[in-house]
């Protein structure tokens, strides 16, 4: 049970629209996160934690607090990244489909608007109300090539994790909520993170 990946957790199908509707939270909404960034360039995933503020449909802030401070503001089509003691960096959202996916997924979850999501993704939902999994597959070929899929897991009306990509192609895993006692012995893998997510959901 614990070894199940989010993808393989097969159960009766849920209605995605109803699930998304249930997750609705009034903007502005804010949530703590811990992100594990995987890359072929890296020996170990990078780990940062902080807070996500969802202010409006096209306005997301991402604050990194640990292990350094960084502020990202996504507004409309533009992204700006500020880090203490470094030059401000700005770029267009179209250069980072990953980010647009994240933004859309978030927007959908918090506003309960499944129609907006359907414009960009094919949605499937599995599991049951107490422990569910929502999968978004990009419709656009270019985005699909870059991110393959976004998976969100959760329990009840609370999301617990967000996976960008899957398996060996996992780009990032984001755990929501506080995880003060999360300590890894040995290698951090998407699989182990998936387990933690499921446990987290189960605990709730």
């Amino acid at each position: 049970m614990c070894l199940l990946l989010p993808i393989s957790s097969q159960a009766s199908d849920l209605d995605p629209a109803a699930l998304i509707e249930r997750l609705k939270k009034p903007a502005p909404a804010s949530i703590a996160f811990k992100e594990f960034r995987f890359s072929a360039l890296l020996e170990q995933p990078l780990v940062v934690s902080g807070e996500l503020n969802y202010l409006a449909a096209d306005h997301l802030q991402r604050f990194v607090k640990e292990p350094y401070r960084e502020k990202t503001i996504i507004r409309g089509e533009s992204v700006r990244v500020e880090r203490d003691g470094e030059k401000l960096r700005t770029f267009a959202l179209k250069r980072a489909p990953e980010l647009r996916g994240l933004l859309t997924a978030f927007g959908a979850l918090l506003t309960g608007n499944s129609e907006a999501v359907r414009k960009q993704f094919e949605i499937t939902a599995t599991g049951e109300a107490a422990r569910w999994e929502l999968k978004l597959i990009p419709l656009d070929a270019r985005s699909k090539e870059r991110i393959q899929e976004i998976t969100i897991t959760g329990a009840g009306d609370t999301p617990s994790c967000l996976f960008m990509g899957s398996g060996v192609n996992t780009q990032s895993v984001m755990l929501f909520g506080e995880h003060p006692n999360l300590i890894f012995n040995g290698e951090v893998s998407p699989e182990r993170l998936s387990t933690i997510c499921n446990e987290g959901s189960a605990a709730q």
């Binding site: 960034r37 960084e70 990202t72 990244v81 880090r83 990953e98 980010l99």
Partner: peptide, 16 residues
Amino acid sequence: RARARDLASPAGAFLE
């Protein structure tokens, strides 16, 4: 060190 941070930031996606 700065690049590792870039990689972990939203800019990482296209800098990678």
